[in-house]
Simulated assay, not measured.
Amino acid sequence: MLVTVTGGTGFVGAHSVAAIVRAGHRVRVLARDPALLAPALAPLEVPPGAVDVAAGDVTDEAAVAAAVRGADAVLHAASVYSFDSRRHAAMRAVNELGTEIVLAAARRAVDGPIVHVSTVAALFPAAGRVIGEDSPVGRPRETYMATKAAAERVARRHQDEGAPVVITYPPALLGPHDPKLGDQVGRVRDVLRGLMPIWPLGGFPIGDVRDTAELHARLFTTPPAGPARRFAPNHYLTTREYLAALREVTGRRLPAVHLPARSMFPIGRLADLAQRVWPWHIPAEYGALYTCACATRVAPDAGTTGIDPRPFAETAGDTVRWLRDAGHLTARQAGSASPAPSPVPVH
């Protein structure tokens, strides 16, 4: 099977490409900058020649049509995932318009599965205490989450029309080999650099990028019958448990003060305004605070995948060791990063 992948130079996309190739499929990646593909896939041991690249952007209808032509299936993983206020316009273009273009082109070109990579955040704030495959699309008051909710509505419309669209819901993701050092892995780096001494109360679903990639590969090997929604393997962690895991794997104290998330909203709003003119990243973002305030757990039986989530301590340890080995952290900042930390409680 030939699978066209968008977003293949990003964190989820690159790991998914590697997993799809391991499952025995061929891959064609639509990349805005084809030069970024080889560095993204090299650490994941993707054999040379297993992946073709087509130059183009997901907002370019002609480029998308060319990329899906002749393919058997599509994985739409392209997305701007960031709480950085400087990227709001890019989020609206890629997350919303890009999804409209890619899913429409995929329906015209392929007969196999069309997998849209959504996010649990597209379902927040939730009406109940848990989210599942029948949860309504959220109406969040935060730009990244709102653009992903808009993309979710596009994907569900295609499902309602009978298209073979499968929606996956990754949680916040960590793991090694993040080609662009995105929001979540960058946050771990900021914590270990001592840039985040104040944390909101609350929590969020979190998982390992390798588990999400495995889910995507399985969807092309054994496509679900009919429209389907699948939640990637995850744990729900409070922010206290998240920090406890980082303390465990690094052996560092990492002192922190915890405040109610909503009480920190004004700080996040001011930081977002300042970020528009300040050239360096400010590790205090309204979107992250908003997520902790409104995130809920994934129902235990939601979108069964048959993949057990890795222990979060393993994911955290692998992330920290990669950050150290890649030069994003010093050995002192990474601490002990012991190879087999004991697990922290998860819910």
Rank of each mutant, 00 (worst) to 15 (best):
residue 2 L to E: 12
residue 5 V to E: 06
residue 6 T to C: 07
residue 9 T to S: 14
residue 9 T to P: 07
residue 13 G to C: 05
residue 18 A to C: 01
residue 21 V to M: 10
residue 23 A to S: 12
residue 25 H to V: 09
residue 28 R to C: 02
residue 28 R to M: 04
residue 32 R to K: 03
residue 32 R to L: 00
residue 38 A to I: 00
residue 40 A to F: 06
residue 50 A to D: 11
residue 50 A to H: 12
residue 51 V to D: 05
residue 57 D to F: 00
residue 59 T to C: 15
residue 60 D to V: 04
residue 62 A to W: 02
residue 68 V to H: 05
residue 72 D to M: 03
residue 73 A to L: 05
residue 77 A to M: 10
residue 78 A to P: 00
residue 79 S to K: 01
residue 80 V to Y: 01
residue 81 Y to P: 00
residue 88 H to K: 14
residue 91 M to C: 06
residue 93 A to C: 06
residue 107 R to K: 00
residue 113 P to H: 00
residue 119 T to D: 11
residue 120 V to G: 03
residue 123 L to E: 01
residue 124 F to I: 03
residue 127 A to H: 13
residue 128 G to I: 04
residue 130 V to G: 01
residue 130 V to Q: 12
residue 131 I to V: 13
residue 131 I to A: 06
residue 132 G to M: 01
residue 132 G to D: 15
residue 137 V to P: 03
residue 140 P to W: 07
residue 142 E to R: 12
residue 144 Y to E: 11
residue 144 Y to A: 08
residue 145 M to L: 12
residue 146 A to V: 03
residue 147 T to G: 05
residue 149 A to L: 09
residue 155 A to S: 07
residue 158 H to V: 01
residue 158 H to Q: 04
residue 160 D to I: 06
residue 160 D to E: 14
residue 164 P to W: 10
residue 166 V to R: 00
residue 173 L to W: 05
residue 181 L to K: 01
residue 182 G to V: 04
residue 182 G to D: 05
residue 183 D to W: 14
residue 183 D to H: 15
residue 189 R to I: 14
residue 190 D to F: 09
residue 194 G to C: 02
residue 195 L to S: 13
residue 195 L to T: 03
residue 196 M to D: 02
residue 198 I to Y: 09
residue 201 L to T: 15
residue 202 G to H: 12
residue 202 G to I: 09
residue 203 G to N: 07
residue 205 P to G: 05
residue 213 A to S: 03
residue 214 E to A: 15
residue 219 L to W: 05
residue 219 L to V: 06
residue 221 T to N: 10
residue 221 T to H: 12
residue 222 T to S: 14
residue 223 P to F: 11
residue 223 P to D: 11
residue 225 A to M: 02
residue 226 G to W: 08
residue 226 G to C: 01
residue 227 P to N: 04
residue 233 P to W: 02
residue 235 H to F: 10
residue 237 L to E: 02
residue 237 L to S: 06
residue 241 E to D: 04
residue 242 Y to K: 03
residue 242 Y to D: 09
residue 242 Y to G: 08
residue 244 A to L: 13
residue 244 A to Q: 13
residue 245 A to G: 10
residue 250 T to S: 11
residue 251 G to V: 03
residue 256 A to S: 14
residue 259 L to H: 01
residue 260 P to G: 07
residue 260 P to F: 04
residue 260 P to W: 10
residue 261 A to R: 11
residue 263 S to T: 14
residue 264 M to P: 08
residue 280 W to D: 14
residue 281 H to M: 11
residue 286 Y to L: 14
residue 291 T to K: 11
residue 292 C to A: 15
residue 294 C to T: 15
residue 296 T to L: 04
residue 299 A to C: 05
residue 302 A to H: 07
residue 304 T to Q: 15
residue 306 G to P: 03
residue 308 D to F: 02
residue 310 R to I: 00
residue 312 F to E: 04
residue 314 E to N: 06
residue 315 T to W: 08
residue 316 A to I: 05
residue 317 G to M: 07
residue 318 D to I: 12
residue 318 D to L: 14
residue 319 T to A: 11
residue 319 T to S: 15
residue 321 R to I: 11
residue 325 D to K: 01
residue 325 D to H: 08
residue 326 A to M: 09
residue 327 G to C: 09
residue 330 T to Y: 10
residue 331 A to C: 11
residue 333 Q to K: 01
residue 334 A to Y: 12
residue 335 G to H: 09
residue 337 A to I: 02
residue 340 A to L: 15
residue 340 A to M: 10
residue 342 S to R: 15
residue 343 P to N: 13
residue 344 V to G: 12
residue 346 V to H: 04
residue 347 H to A: 15
